[in-house]
């Protein structure tokens, strides 16, 4: 690995990134889609603001900023796990079909069940039924993938099965969309654009639990992950139980990505792009650095995206997914065009 000199600089980078995180978090609270004085925001945070200022800060901005951090970190760590497990630079939570599985759950609820049960935006069942459906969809896909992973020796086969499953699910979703009416279609399309601002504190608590549990699992797994970079044969020779590692990694990644997708919709691109950005920033392959690094970078990027999504001004907004993709795509292009080939890192 690296000498102590680069360790030190890694520590410095962490410090800088954490400072940046605090700065962006504060900015996200200060810059909303409405104008609020800095003083009002600060007073509201400590419970001394005006009634409406307090609602805007505590019920709109704070949950949104916290969700951005959780979702960004969750997707990034989940993507890093997938890239290392499959030793593929283009892997991410979505290649396993977790996002499309969640999408299928939502589409089934919205487009087929809700007309029958008269669940519509505004009705009591709506919020939770969407989340549970997304979870169930992501979970079902995860079970299929893990069954395949337990039976197949070659990890590439698992990747291919995941991709095929994702395509098949997308086709089913298309079919459902094709036969649904405009209102339901619009609700589904808006769901696919991702949203950070609609979570209650109770939902944030559940998301926090999923992301911290996943991150803790990921941290426990850094040693086998580092070994995996040297190849599966090498890993087995140093005593890594491949079968168990695979299953654990898949479960961890799916729980995190599935939960984020259930609550926020499919957050595009973070899972693939952030691990690369993290490797570049730290110029390291050590998962002890990459894991927390990816979590912070993911949180940072989603915070920036959230701030940018209100940029048109006058209260107008763009979906957060369009922003993450517009940031993410140039980054990936830059990596591909860069001098260091990404293949060498796997």
């Amino acid at each position: 690995m690296r000498g102590s000199g680069s360790r030190l600089s890694a520590g410095l980078i962490f410090l800088l990134l954490l400072m940046l995180l605090v700065l962006l978090f504060t900015l996200d609270l200060l810059l909303g889609s409405t104008q609020l004085e800095v003083r009002d925001v600060l007073l509201s945070l400590f419970g001394n603001g005006t009634e409406h200022g307090e609602i805007i800060v505590m019920q709109f901005r704070l949950p949104k900023a916290v969700t951005a951090i959780l979702a960004g970190a969750g997707m990034a760590v989940s993507g890093l796990l997938m890239q290392t497990l499959f030793r593929n630079p283009l892997a991410g939570p979505d290649v396993l079909g977790v996002s499309s599985g969640a999408g299928l759950g939502v589409a089934l609820t919205l487009l087929t069940l809700s007309p029958l049960l008269s669940i519509s935006p505004g009705s009591v069942l709506y919020g939770w039924s969407m989340i549970l459906a997304a979870w169930a969809g992501a979970g079902a896909v995860m079970v299929v993938i893990m069954t395949v992973a337990a039976r197949m020796r070659d990890i590439m086969s698992v990747l291919i099965v995941g991709l095929l499953l994702a395509s098949a699910i997308s086709s089913i979703v298309s079919l459902l969309q094709y036969f649904s009416n405009e209102t339901m279609l619009k609700t589904y399309v808006i769901w696919t654009m991702g949203n950070l601002g609609n979570l209650s504190y109770m939902q944030i608590r559940i998301l926090t639990l999923a992301v911290t549990a996943g991150s803790a699992m990921a941290l426990i797994m850094v040693k086998p992950l580092n070994a995996l970079l040297m190849g599966e044969t090498f890993s087995m020779s140093v005593g890594v139980n491949m079968q168990r590692t695979r299953i654990l990694l898949l479960a961890t990644a799916s729980i995190m990505a599935g939960s984020v997708t259930a609550f926020c919709g499919p957050i595009a691109f973070l899972g693939v792009a952030v691990p690369h950005i993290t490797r570049l920033v730290f110029s390291s392959n050590d998962h002890r650095i990459l894991m927390p690094g990816a979590a912070i970078c993911g949180a940072l990027i989603l915070l920036v995206s959230d701030i940018l999504s209100t940029l048109p001004g006058n209260g107008l907004m763009v979906p957060v997914n369009t922003v993450t993709s517009l940031i993410g795509i140039p980054v990936v292009l830059w990596i591909i065009a860069g001098k260091k080939g990404i293949g060498r890192r796997f």
Binding site: G32, S33, T34, H52, I55, I56, G197, G315, L316, M317
Partner: peptide, 14 residues
């Protein structure tokens, strides 16, 4: 129709 952030509508809606 134009897409507004709920926060922005909320402030006016008060």
């Amino acid at each position: 129709s134009m897409p507004y952030a709920v926060e922005a509508v909320f402030k006016r809606a008060t």
